[in-house]
Structure formats: structure tokens, C-alpha cells
Nucleic acid binder design. Structure first.
Lengths: 340, 340
DNA sequence: CTGTTAGCGCGTTCAC
DNA sequence: GTGAACGCGCTAACAG
């Protein structure tokens, strides 16, 4: 391995001078700088980050801890985060927790020993608090994306769950629906809680009494099809909702698949709408009415917040950024009764 | 920061003993091991990977260099790679090249200075050879995924482009099509070349003379809609193909969108089929007939090959693994003339 | 079984 | 402007 000593010898200077050239210190004679740069090129020297980190205490590495890169929503977050990181000279280490706090704990361990400068985290549950506290203790900056753990404050960037839910519900109400169901994620996630709350509030404000039987709870992962089917079957046929708000894209898609398997037509029998587009490719399959959250921006801005924090350019107070979603009305929702 | 010295003091042993415990060396008395582990727990000690790497020359970091994590095909590769890496105690650094060899070169630089132990690479073009050669020179193991750069040999895991293309074309021929078009990626990519060759060969074997005008070349990225439209418009209406093979998912989807915007019906007017499912979520939108390549396995096995190579458990000769695709016949392809 | 010594590659003092 | 000496946290190579 080529080190600064090798190139020092070749350029007839001390290793320190080489180090100065690499870190382009101002006080260096132009002639020696050129000499050193020449040697660096000839020997194809590449600085050793490990050694540098040992003294500088920074690695230019950040961790991205998300539930599952396979979910297009998180895919976009990752792409946004990576773009911003690259721009600012950081590299990102990817971790999939599968919404499992033990797997999350594992990544937190790895991330601490890797010496990353900070982390962008979609926490797996309120029970993640223990994991987050360990980061705080070690003074590793982190930023919440999409969800927060309120007991451990930190910068955050999330969707506007309140208004987005309201828009979705109002869209259905305007179409004449009153028996509206919510298929939600688990209540131990901040975003699911906020959506449930907003769902209830919107109905009440519209003079509709929320029916607890219409508020189903499942999880945000890809494999919730069977659960959705069985919960649906537990409702008597004549008391089924005529419209459904699914709290994320997987739930939306699996609701579609569940209804299809039960022979229920969408939107003729039931209108379906959800958070987050299931497609990475815009408008490829314009069917589902969705509230599209700006996932890319969440990752992009989240990474910016994080790196500002790492570089001590952030204000002392934690920042809470809330991004609006875009309602995309397509054909999975229609006027109640228009088809009967 | 808590170091082995701190815990050595607390446990009344030498730092070396602590190091031995951490790396669970066999020769250590049970009682002292317990004492040390106790201290580690109390002080919440986490080993510093940088320092360790300085002597061990390994970082347990691998790089995943792909064109774009937003493409579901690469998303699945990433997920597979990450799963395997975690299993084997490695962390993965993500890089998106956008099929751009300069961006690729940048990542190669970063990866070298980060001291990653190896890399999983989807090369951006045959011109990537220069980048690959730099890795060879530095003896950084790498594995090609999906595509190869033949001038620089290395382990590889790719799809079976020959047979997959043949199956796709034969499927169309069996449906009565003869005017079959190929919308391909650029010829400087090994997989596109193989697909073009197999496409021609299959037609000829079936007694159909390949028409060069039906072999359109664009790129594999998301934003090729306009290009596809204009290439399509350059064909006279009565000499348009009746079926199309799209060489990847983005091309497939954008062909669909292009045809839609031109008022051409699929499959009534033109059948469309492509490589790689555009959906992450299985069978959510069962429309496109696709040849689904096992992307997850490519990432998973690719990572395994890589880590074997890193740990010197691989044979000297480069390994070439070729994985078959699964033909999923859906409704975007139909019998020629059946609808007229 | 355990401790001592030295050094990994680099940057931070300080001098010169 | 430039260099020598020391230390970052850890482990390999020897002792003992």
C-alpha cells in the first residue's frame, strides 16, 4: 500500500509536507506542492480513510436505516438521501430493519462501531426509544424520517399526516361515501397514530360518527394480504364500508388484491385510496387514487438536515419539517351509488 | 470514547487481554473472560472499527454500485445483496451511477479511499473498463452483476439473456406475430448486445428475416419515453411491428405509455412484453407479460461470490453464474389478428 | 493463559 | 515554509 511516506521519499520532502498538500494547507510553496502532486499521481496514491478517521474522528459515512428498500416509498427516500450525501461528500450505508426493533438494534450497533458520522432513521416502533437513546448517549447525530419516537427528540422530516388524511377522507365524502374504513399500520408508530386521529376527526367534523369496526389495524409490510382478507371477512356483508383509506402503499395494493380475491369490484363496490404510490414509475398504471408523499424530498432534505447537524451548522433546537402530499385522483375511487 | 484501555483498567487486566476477549480468542480463562465482559457491558464499550482496520486491512464494508436504486430490478438486487452481507457480517455502501461512467469513476474513487473490502458492480458501459482496471490494480475484489465488461475478467452473475430473449420471441411467434420489434438498450452494454443477438438468431431460426428497422436502440434509464415515441413515429403506420420486446422494465413501461399516447391499443393493436417486472409488489397489476429475472437472487448470490472472493475461499478461475428468468404471460400479449 | 512492545497510516502539536 | 515526535485505538509477535 502506498502511504504518505512513500510519496514523501519520492518527492524529497517530509511526510508532513505531503499531508499538507493533500489537505491543501495554504502555507505551502507552489513548487513543492507541484513536486508532491506529481509523486502522488505517479504512485497512484490514495489516502487511507481509516487512518485519517482515527485522528479526525469523522468518517464521512452516514447510515440510512429504513424498514425495507423494496418498498417504493423507502426506495425514493434512499435515492434522495444518496443524492444529497454524494453532493456533500458523504457515503451512505444501507440497512433494512423489516420493522423489527431487534434488527434495528443490530444496525445501531454496527453503525456505532463503524463510526458513522450520523444516521437517517425510520424508527421501527416507539420501542425504538432504547436504540435512539444509545445514539444520543454517544452523541451520534440522527434525523427521523417519516416517523418519530417522541420520547427521544431529534430533527425530523415527515409527511403531513393530518392534512393528507383529511384530504383523502374528504375526497371520499365528496363522492358520497359515509361508511369509510381505515386500514392502518400499528398504533405504536407515530405516523399511524396521527393518521388514525386525523381520520376520526375528519369524519366527526363532517358529521359522520366513526365506526370502530371500520378502523382495522395491520402492519406496513408487504405480507399483510392474508390479514387484510381475514379482517375483511370478519365484517358482515351488509355492514362493509363502501370506501377504504389504506395507510400505506402495501396496504393499498393488498387491499386491492384482497377485494379482487373476494370478488368485490373496485371502484364499483368499494372505492380504494391510499398513502404513497406503489409505483416507482410515474403514471405507469394510473388506477389507484393516492396521496403521494414526496419521498425523494424527504430523503434529500433529511440528509441535508443530518449533515448540517453533523457539521455543527444546525440550530440547537430540534427542527421539525412537515411536507405536504399530493392527491392524485385516479379511477379506484368513484361516486357512491353511481354504479348501482 | 471508551477504549480497550478503559475497560482493561476496570477489569484489572491488560489491554491485550481485552482485545482477546473481544475477538473471542480460545485461550482465555473463563473467569477473566467474564470479568472483562462485565466491564464491557458496564462501560457500554463498542470496538472502534477504524482502528481495527488499520492493522487488519479489512473494513467489513462492501460497495454496491448500481445504475439506479429506483429501478425495481436494482432495488431487488440491493435487497438481496444487503441480506447476504448482513448475514456474513458486512455492511453495504450504496452508489447510484445513473449509467454514467464518470459518476461510476467517482464511486470507484470513493470506494478505494473508503477501503471497502470489495464491490458488487453493475458496470455502466464497456468504457467502464478503465474503472474496473483500477480495482484490479489495487487488488480490490469485485463481482459483475447483470452485465459484464469482457475486457476485464471477474466473477459475474447475470441473467440468461440468450434463452430469456428466445422465450420471449417464441412466445410472440406462437401467438402468430412475425413483425416483431426489439426496443433495446445501448450496444455498449453486454446484456443489450446479448439480447440483440439472441433476438436475431431466434427470428432466423423461425424462418423470419430480422428487419433492422424493427431493432430500435435507446437506453435503460427511466426517461426514455420521448425517444421511444419519436422512434416509433419514424416508422410508417403500415410497417409498424405487431409485437414488441422491450429490453428492460423502463423501456417496457414507457413503450406502454408511448403507445397509449399515440392511441395504439395494447394488446389489440400491438402486443408488448419486456424483461424485468416493473412492480416490486408481486401481481399487483397483472398486465404486462414479462420475463422476470431473479434480481433478488442475483444480489444475494453475487454478494456471496464477492465475500468468498474477499475471504480467499474462491477458486482462482473466475466464476460465471447465469440465472434463468421466469416467463409470466399476462394480458399485454395476445394472438395476432384475433382482435381484427 | 496473560502481558509487553511495536507499529498500522495519518494529523496535530510544537519547534526550526 | 517545513520537519520531528507523539498519539489516535487496536492487534501481531513475542515473551513469560
Amino acid at each position: 500500500m502506498v502511504t504518505i511516506y512513500d510519496i514523501a521519499k519520492k518527492a524529497n520532502v517530509s511526510p508532513m509536507t505531503v499531508s499538507r498538500v493533500i489537505n491543501n494547507s495554504p502555507s505551502i510553496k507552489e513548487s513543492t506542492r507541484l513536486k508532491v502532486e506529481e509523486a502522488i499521481r505517479e504512485l497512484e496514491y490514495v489516502p487511507n480513510k481509516q487512518a485519517r478517521s482515527l485522528t479526525s474522528k469523522e468518517t464521512k459515512l452516514v447510515s440510512l436505516v429504513i424498514p425495507d428498500i423494496s418498498n417504493p416509498f423507502f426506495t425514493n427516500i434512499a435515492r434522495g438521501a444518496e443524492d444529497k450525501a454524494l453532493q456533500l461528500g458523504y457515503q451512505v450505508i444501507l440497512g433494512n430493519t423489516d420493522e423489527n426493533k431487534d434488527k434495528e438494534a443490530m444496525y445501531i450497533n454496527m453503525l456505532m462501531s463503524s463510526g458513522v458520522d450520523g444516521a437517517l432513521i425510520v424508527p421501527s416502533s416507539d420501542d425504538s426509544a432504547a436504540n435512539m437513546k444509545r445514539l444520543v448517549k454517544r452523541r451520534i447525530p440522527f434525523v427521523y424520517v417519516d416517523r418519530t419516537v417522541d420520547s427521544v427528540p431529534a430533527d425530523s422530516i415527515t409527511g403531513d399526516n393530518l392534512n393528507t388524511t383529511r384530504e383523502l377522507v374528504q375526497h371520499l365524502i365528496e363522492l358520497g361515501h359515509e361508511r369509510i374504513g381505515l386500514i392502518n399500520g400499528p398504533a405504536y408508530l407515530s405516523n399511524a397514530r396521527e393518521r388514525a386521529q386525523a381520520f376520526r376527526d375528519t369524519l366527526i367534523l363532517s358529521g359522520i360518527q366513526p365506526n370502530p369496526r371500520y378502523m382495522i389495524e395491520t402492519h406496513f409490510k408487504q405480507d399483510n394480504l392474508d390479514e387484510i382478507i381475514s379482517k375483511f371477512l370478519s365484517l358482515r356483508e351488509n355492514e362493509r364500508p363502501t370506501a377504504i383509506v389504506a395507510a400505506n402503499n402495501f396496504i393499498g395494493v393488498n387491499t386491492l388484491r384482497a377485494l379482487r380475491s373476494l370478488g368485490i369490484r373496485v371502484p364499483e363496490d368499494i372505492s380504494v385510496t391510499c398513502f404513497d404510490d406503489p409505483d416507482i414509475i410515474p403514471d405507469y398504471n394510473p388506477f389507484l387514487t393516492v396521496a403521494k408523499q414526496p419521498a425523494y424530498d424527504m430523503g434529500y432534505i433529511g440528509m441535508q438536515l443530518l449533515i448540517e447537524r453533523i457539521q455543527n451548522e444546525a440550530p440547537a433546537a430540534t427542527r421539525k419539517i412537515v411536507l405536504p402530499a399530493e392527491l392524485k385522483v385516479r379511477t379506484s375511487t368513484s361516486r357512491r351509488g353511481a354504479q348501482d
